[in-house]
Simulated assay, not measured.
Amino acid sequence: MRVMVIIKATPESEAGQMPSTELIAAMGKYNEELVKAGIMQGGDGLKPSSKGVRVKFSGKDRTVVDGPFAETKELIAGYWIWQVQSMDEAIEWVRRCPNPMTSDSEIEIRPFFEPADFGEAFTPELQEEEKRLRQQIDAQSR
């Protein structure tokens, strides 16, 4: 199963506080373990919400709202994409993670939808189209 492992923002990350050399080294070592185990498919840190925008949808209207955004606890500071056997395996890997922030922090694990989750609505034709698009994405990233 594929999961997104979401590192929640903190007041420090939203203020743009950069991690220490020690934390960067610890996270690098942890990422290396994930890669060697065949778990990590990608991941990055995100700049504070003050550097981002949101696009709100209402019918055919689109409204762009500049950051920063309130409610730090609802914001994302970084993420990983992992391929694991189960949610339990993902939890065990997160338990081994160094604290990604200088203060208390939280990491959320969310599974991706799989084709079977969509049932009959995801027709063979739509599945083939999805497969073709993923192949194009893979080819472009090389």
Rank of each mutant, 00 (worst) to 15 (best):
R2V: 08
R2C: 04
V3Q: 11
V3W: 14
K8S: 05
A9K: 09
T10Q: 07
P11W: 07
E12A: 15
S13Y: 12
M18H: 13
P19Q: 02
S20Y: 10
T21A: 13
E22I: 02
E22C: 05
K29Y: 05
Y30W: 11
N31M: 06
V35F: 11
I39E: 02
I39C: 02
M40I: 07
M40R: 11
Q41N: 07
G42A: 06
G45K: 00
K47I: 06
P48D: 02
S49Y: 10
S50L: 13
V53S: 10
V55T: 12
K60P: 06
D66P: 04
D66G: 03
D66H: 09
G67L: 03
P68Q: 00
F69Q: 04
T72E: 03
K73E: 14
L75V: 05
I76G: 03
W80H: 08
Q85P: 07
S86Q: 12
S86D: 14
D88L: 06
I91C: 08
W93G: 02
V94M: 09
R95A: 13
P98K: 02
E108L: 03
E108G: 06
R110Y: 11
P111Y: 03
P111W: 03
F112T: 02
F113G: 05
F113M: 12
F113A: 10
P115C: 01
F118W: 00
G119I: 02
A121G: 04
P124F: 01
L126D: 08
E129K: 09
E130A: 15
K131S: 09
R132V: 14
I137C: 05
S141F: 15
R142G: 09
